[in-house]
Each structure stands twice: as structure tokens, then as C-alpha cells.
Design a protein around this nucleic acid. Structure first.
Lengths: 218, 218
DNA sequence: TTTCTAGTAAAAATCGATTATTTTGCTTAG
DNA sequence: CTAAGCAAAATAATCGATTTTTACTAGAAA
């Protein structure tokens, strides 16, 4: 097979995993919905084995729930869990940002400026999914040099959980400008190496997002 | 099929998952080892599909790594990662214990005393695996009423990671008495609702375990 | 002797078919 | 008319066979 094609092709299972993860985050499937194996096979045009492996991974990751002999379900949304996720994000991302401000080098500063620039440019003229992608990248770039692999892992996982709430909230898009302003300010505080203020603002930022996201419940 | 038997039987995949998880924690498979699918099929006497689903879940959980078309490997042990896991445990379990001391009720106090009692009784006269089980239960009971599902989830995950290091350390068994003494003291501080001192001691406890666990690397 | 390549063996990944379980809809007794 | 029980359909879970990919080995050319 062609070398270039070979590079791009991971296993079928991991491709399905990524597609399903995106669609779950985008709210393509309703909270609590049961996912029919047969339907998914048709939708994603894949065989049974790789599909089930992808679903198993998503269940372990926390985006799906597997019931005894009753297949896979999308997890429900609840205010209590959103509060839990929000508080965990505040603490973990806050801590990570403090560490990142302490350890981040010039390369980090460049990446951060670049990520913020791309995000601002995509503010209103690009499709939602693209802004979401850039938004994730920005928050990831912010805490990347914190020095802890496990901290970053948990943060990503919570981010995915949070996005399920945020993206299904009706008013989510209207807040973009306000959030972007906070992103801008976060970059400035980070470059100024003001760890304490940066952390405080990030926690405010998360709380604000959470208030909007609440509208997705009930 | 019989009702009682029905109760006990989860899916084949989840049974394999639990067995493999236990064996990985017990160090039955060497760090970095490649797991042969065919061999695993014979060992656990299962079919291909549920086995692969279990392996996929374990990979998502962080006990295995799946390489492109090269199957599943046990994750390596490294001092850096142990340090990372230890620091994360200190912070997350410390925080959780503070919350548990604040929110725990009488039921919690009873459970805690019971778990500690069982652990002390099993100190030297029972097989290792049983002590390990009771040890996990004790630490779980300690932080259980912290009020955050996600915090508990991350703590369990880190505990499993940590155990891979601790259980393969040669001197791990000799420390039991010292650790048990700390467990005793933790219970007393918890019942006395001394959140600050309890947290400090738990962090010491984790650090002590970590020093022993280090011997499993290189 | 070393390096490259073709061929073969081994292993992983995927597929379609089969089996077991749950859900649904109909029938019948109360 | 309701509800329990049974049969049929639908769906999930598992299995063995097939396909694809990688790892190994031997032989030829430099």
C-alpha cells in the first residue's frame, strides 16, 4: 500500500472512537438515548467488532454507560453532575495553570498567543464545530506545560464531559464574545507570569461557562 | 436459566476485564510486556470479541497501551510517572479526606472503624491478595463521603496505577506494620474531625508508600 | 561481510454467522 | 376490561473464520 495512505490509517476501531466521541460532544445523540448497534453500523459503515471496541472505550472514558445485556446508552445530564464537573475543573485547571505559569517557556508563550489569535479570528465567521475545536486547543495550550501527565489527562476528560453540557445549552453561542475577552485577559496574565490572578480569572471563566451550561439540564 | 446464577453473571467481557485488571495490579504480567491475544484466550478461556473489548477498556483506563497494528502492551514503570501519580494522589486524596471529614456521618464512622479492623486482623495471617483488597477498601471508605463522584473516580484510577508500582516493589510487605499504624491514626483523626491533621497524615502516608514503591523501577 | 528484498510464518484486526437475552405484541383467563 | 403468560421478533453478545498487517528468515546482489 501507498506510504502516505499507510501513515493516515489507524485502526478502524480508533477511527470510530474519534467519530463517535465528536458526535457525542456535539450532542448528535440525546442524553440517555440508547445506541442501537445495528444503526451505528449503518451510520458509520463499519463492522461489529471495531464498533463494539470503540463503544467499550467510550464507556471506560465516561461518555457512555453499558448496561448488562441492554447495550450502550448515552449518559444523562444532571445539574448535580455539572456542579461536580465544574468544581473539579476549577481546582484541577486552576492548579495546572499555576504550574504552567511557573514552568512555561518562550515556546509556550508563542503557542498561547497563536492559539488565542486563531480563536479570536474564528469568532463569528466560521462554523461552530471549528470554533469548538480551537477553543479546546486554546485551553489545552494554556495548561500544557504544567508538568503532570495525569493532571492533563484528567483535565481533558473533564473538558469533554463539560462540553456535553455547554454545547447543548441554547444560549451557549451568545457568550462567545465575553468568553473571548476572558481568553485575551488570560493570555496577558500568563505572559506577565501573574500566577495568582491568572488562576482566579480561569476559575471565574469556568464558573461563567458553567452558568450558561446549566440551561442544558431539564 | 436459574435466577440466582443470572444475578451473578455480568457480561463475559466485564468478567475478563476484572480478572485482567487484578492480574495487572498483581504484577502477573511484566511492565512493557506484549500481551498475545491467542495466549490470553487460552489463559482465560474466552472468545475473541469479549477479550478484545476488555483489553480496549483497560487501554482507555490506562493500564494497557494499544499500538497501531501491534496489539496491546502492559505500560512501563518509570520514576517520573510514579512521582506524578504520587503527587496527584497527595492532592486529590488530601482534598477528598478534608471533604469527607466535613461531610461524613455516623454511618461513615462505623464503616471506617470496620474497614480498619478487618485490615488489622488480616495483617500477617492472610494471603497478600486479601490484604491488598482490604487495604483498597479502607482507603476507599476513608474518602467515600467527599461528595464528588469525579474526585472518587480519579482517586480510584490513581490507586490502581499506584498499586502497580507498590506491589512489584520487593520491600513492600515489610512496611505493612508501619502503614497499619498510620491507618489507625488516620481513623482517630477522622473521628475527631481534625481535617487539617488528617490530611497532613494522609499525605505523609502516601509519600511513605511511594518511597517503597520506587524500588520497583529499574 | 553487509545490505536489500522476496517469501513465509505469525499475529492482530475485521467480518459475517450463531447464540443468548430482552422486548414486544398477542392471546386467554380472571 | 385488566393482567398474566406465552410466542415471536428484535437486539445484544459471543464465536469461529477470513483478511490484513507485521515480524522473521533466507537468499541474492553489492
Amino acid at each position: 500500500m501507498n506510504e502516505v495512505l499507510k501513515q493516515g490509517s489507524a485502526t478502524t476501531a480508533s477511527r470510530i472512537y474519534e467519530m463517535l466521541r465528536q458526535d457525542l460532544l456535539d450532542g448528535r445523540y440525546a442524553a440517555g438515548e440508547r445506541l442501537s448497534i445495528a444503526l451505528l453500523r449503518e451510520t458509520y459503515e463499519v463492522g461489529l467488532s471495531p464498533l463494539r471496541e470503540a463503544l467499550s472505550r467510550l464507556a471506560a472514558y465516561g461518555l457512555l454507560r453499558q448496561e448488562n445485556q441492554r447495550g450502550f446508552r448515552v449518559l444523562e445530564l444532571s445539574r448535580d453532575e455539572l456542579a461536580d464537573i465544574t468544581e473539579m475543573r476549577r481546582q484541577l485547571e486552576g492548579k495546572a495553570l499555576e504550574l504552567a505559569v511557573k514552568h512555561g517557556d518562550e515556546e509556550w508563550e508563542s503557542q498561547l498567543l497563536a492559539a488565542n489569535h486563531r480563536l479570536l479570528k474564528a469568532c463569528s465567521h466560521t462554523p461552530v464545530v471549528e470554533w469548538e475545536e480551537l477553543h479546546s486547543r486554546f485551553h489545552n495550550a494554556l495548561v500544557a506545560p504544567c508538568g503532570s501527565v495525569w493532571l492533563l489527562r484528567f483535565i481533558s476528560q473533564l473538558h469533554d464531559q463539560f462540553d456535553r453540557y455547554r454545547r447543548s445549552a441554547p444560549r451557549a453561542q451568545g457568550l462567545r464574545h465575553q468568553l473571548d475577552a476572558q481568553h485575551q485577559e488570560l493570555v496577558e496574565l500568563a505572559l506577565a507570569r501573574n500566577a495568582r490572578r491568572a488562576r482566579e480569572l480561569l476559575e471565574e471563566h469556568i464558573t461563567l461557562s458553567s452558568e450558561v451550561a446549566q440551561e442544558s439540564c431539564r
